[in-house]
């Protein structure tokens, strides 16, 4: 397999992996070869392995016979089958002579519990590819079958103006307005407090964290903006 290493490194499935890891992974895989037009699996077939295309192409057909995609060398098919106990839902057929690596469920299940770096690399790679496939299919669905729940555009509503001669809100009123936020933080850890300070400073575009003050006990801060004050018991 060492002779094929330069070629394997060009395949997306092995992209970025060290040579030893690539060679180690190939020892975990069985090899399969399909003739042109040969079916790898079809709807209703029992759950089974996932496959990485080494050479050639595979076409993915819906149950109705519609071509969904053509997968090329380096791409994988059936990765979700490693986890989900459901029969196959699509038909996979070779276009031209096609070589595959097979990842069987037992091998993958063992890798999930193993401590070898090769096993971790396999699990990470499968998870990474699933993330990409999920993002792609979500993108397709958003276009062909968009969600129907639509909320109206949020409207800006200005707070009512105070009466002309009304007194300006005092410190107690400002403190009362900030009470819910303080209540939410009363059991927070120091790490939570620091994270909250970072968040407040980040939102306000502040580069100087002194703009936010943590207050302990009954200490009375010399500040009038309660949103920048975090009070701790």
């Amino acid at each position: 397999m060492k002779n094929f290493l330069p070629y394997l490194k060009t395949l997306a499935f092995f992209d970025g992996l060290p040579d030893d890891t690539i060679l180690g992974l190939t020892t975990r895989f069985a090899r399969q070869r399909l003739a042109d037009g040969e079916v790898l699996y079809e709807p209703g077939d029992p759950k089974g392995s996932a496959f990485v295309i080494v050479r050639g192409e595979l076409e993915v057909l819906s149950a109705g016979g519609q071509r969904m995609a053509v997968l090329k060398a380096g791409e994988a098919v059936g990765l979700h089958e490693l986890f989900v106990d459901e029969p196959r839902a699509t038909l996979i057929r070779a276009i031209g002579e096609t070589g595959l690596f097979e990842i069987d469920r037992a091998t993958f299940a063992a890798a999930c519990e193993a401590i070898e770096p090769i096993d971790a690399a396999l699990v990470e790679r499968v998870a990474h590819l699933l993330a990409i496939q999920l993002r792609e299919i979500d993108g397709v669905l958003a276009r062909v079958d968009p969600p129907v729940i639509v909320a109206p555009a949020p409207r800006f509503e200005a707070p009512p103006l105070p009466a002309p001669n009304a007194p300006l809100p005092g410190r107690s009123a400002l403190r009362a307005a900030a009470a819910p936020r303080m209540e939410a933080l009363k059991d927070a850890t120091d790490a939570d407090i620091m994270a909250r300070i970072d968040e407040i400073a980040d939102r306000a575009g502040l580069s100087d964290l002194d703009s936010v003050k943590v207050v302990y006990g009954d200490e009375q801060p010399l500040r009038t903006n309660p949103s920048s004050i975090i009070r701790r018991g």
Binding site: S62, A63, G64, Q66, M68, L79, H80, L82, F83, V84, E86, A89, T90, A127, L130, A131, Q133, L134, I137, D138, V140, L141, V144, D145
Partner: peptide, 18 residues
Amino acid sequence: GMAVRLVRASTRATQVVD
């Protein structure tokens, strides 16, 4: 978790296509 969501999304996509 992603595999389960992928199956649901793929199933829906193939239904829409058909």
